[in-house]
Nucleic acid binder design. Sequence first.
DNA 1: CTGAAAGCGCTTACAG
DNA 2: CTGAAAGCGCTTACAG
Lengths: 364, 364
Amino acid sequence: MTVKRPDSPKRRVTSTDVAALANVSQSAVSRVFAHHPSVSDKMRRAVLEAARTLGYRPNAIARSLITQRSRIIGVAMAYLDNQFYPEVLQSLSRALQAYGYQILLFTADETGAADPMLEQVLSYQVDALLLASVSLSSHIAEECELAGIPVIMFNRTSSTPGAASVTGDNFAGGRQVAEFLVAGGHQRFAYIAGAAESSTNRDREAGFCAGLAALGMAQPMRVPGQYDWQSAQAGTRLLLGRPTRPDAIFAASDLMAIACLEVARTEFGLSVPHDLSIVGFDDVGVARWPSYQLTSFAQPVEAMVSAAVTLILERLESLAAPPRPIVIPGRLIVRQTTRHPAQGLVVEDGERVWRTPSETTEGP
Amino acid sequence: MTVKRPDSPKRRVTSTDVAALANVSQSAVSRVFAHHPSVSDKMRRAVLEAARTLGYRPNAIARSLITQRSRIIGVAMAYLDNQFYPEVLQSLSRALQAYGYQILLFTADETGAADPMLEQVLSYQVDALLLASVSLSSHIAEECELAGIPVIMFNRTSSTPGAASVTGDNFAGGRQVAEFLVAGGHQRFAYIAGAAESSTNRDREAGFCAGLAALGMAQPMRVPGQYDWQSAQAGTRLLLGRPTRPDAIFAASDLMAIACLEVARTEFGLSVPHDLSIVGFDDVGVARWPSYQLTSFAQPVEAMVSAAVTLILERLESLAAPPRPIVIPGRLIVRQTTRHPAQGLVVEDGERVWRTPSETTEGP
DNA sequence: CTGAAAGCGCTTACAG
DNA sequence: CTGAAAGCGCTTACAG
């Protein structure tokens, strides 16, 4: 009644094979590779030698089945053309590998439909799911939590209060951008929105509007967007085609800010920042490229990733920790796409940074 | 003698639970979810309803253990700051998901050490490994093949003859760049190299040199590089600081070409392409950005990914197919960073493309 | 079409 | 410290 195997090219080496060669029990082999304390040196040596001879590696699949832990973290991500996400992915992968966890990558399909993905996530018994796509509905998160899989939102929040999430300080970022632009003497503000349903867009926009309002400025002109190049391009054309155009545009992401900058320069012949100031959000690598030198509110990838890893480990390796939202503070990095206020700029780590009056203790 | 489970928050629903509720055998549940043909409609309905009630999903880990197939493809990648790789990752993920395969992502650590990664790849019983990092040694490929795991090289070749690989046409690409630049009337050529040990760099450089030689031109000046921004920047400074500087630079990747372009413009005040022509390789998204408009040899990501998926499926789902190298042809996309020859440009899919004299049938 | 049972390769309580 | 054995949740040949 042996189960027939689909033509496996070669049988893999198992702990039983190693045990036979080393003349010990299969349990002993298992104990050696699990670094179980009660193993004699003699046995350890025998097992390791036999394992080396045969080229044995423990089968993580079998281990997962019995331990109920796959040491696999599902990561759902989209928008890989926004450089922020590859940066996160690389950093996250390194951080998790350091703790012995691997990443099973899920990307949304063209339609953005999350349900086929959900089935896979649940099937593969991932230990936790990191949801890093703004467009994926919270539904998937609820289903996973229901199935006992911890969900960590990344660069987004959940509608569920108290859910685990890591975000930059989107509201404060938006507000700082407003304060910075007002201090720089700008008069007519505009906002190029990210995806309407995303928490990042909602908070960045709310912060920007609140900041302007607090300083007695009119609310910004607003064009819709989707966190992509196309929509930012279209939005910029709309804004700059108006009879009285804005003199400061805040775009919901760096990618969108760069699209805006390109349109302003090449299609409208504007000089940035002389005719128009532009601010982005994320501070991705391209923001530093000489042709752009984009002023941007920095989301610190490393700190956000560390926080996410902390949340994951808390949920997996201890019972005590309740899920919670973590907000990572950021800084407004001031480069060449904005007219600058006379005061309030300080240098940190070789970058010029804006400090809002409330934050700085230096008087005039 | 029940194995104690580390405090699992909730027991997951198994096929046995579903069987009990539906009053059928566990095998029946398994057959329904495996789409086994011999299942009565009545039973199928009963099972599916019970499954829905309980929120059952088959456990892919358990399935993997018995079928000896994880339906997981390991993907080893680095250089995620080179936009080419995120594009590949996104496309590959979609393509594999369509066939029911998932991606387990491995990234090289800071030291570039591949061995810890190797252990993980082998442990997780991936069905195949796609090696997409130029810096990872072929050693890891050999170990995997030895363990019965098919390895597909992506955007690199293997020293092992006949190994499975997918690459752009690096040699032809380099040669076309040479022919194009010579046709454009350039005189002094330079090459900014990618990582010295990489097959992509070797072939691109060899093609470029061969193309120049065939047209009776002197060999290019050469500066070393690492496929990154820093080295391209440094290399460009070296090249442009010479008493007789090149009038055409071919960089081994778009990322390097853009770094080169930035240095030429901002540090040397050169006008591109008036004073200097620059050509990249890959045709990533940023190459199309208005500030760059980079002439670049395009590696078609979709076609390369399709070929990789084909190779993977051939190895996994049929015995017949021997591993083989696949070379995907590319096109030299002509934009604004090069002086153009009077003839030989055609328009395809809205892009200007260079056709070498040997390829085109149109007379003068 | 359906069920009972073996077995995938491990971990771990139990007994010595 | 060590071994025999149960069991993780499936798939599948076998028998009916």
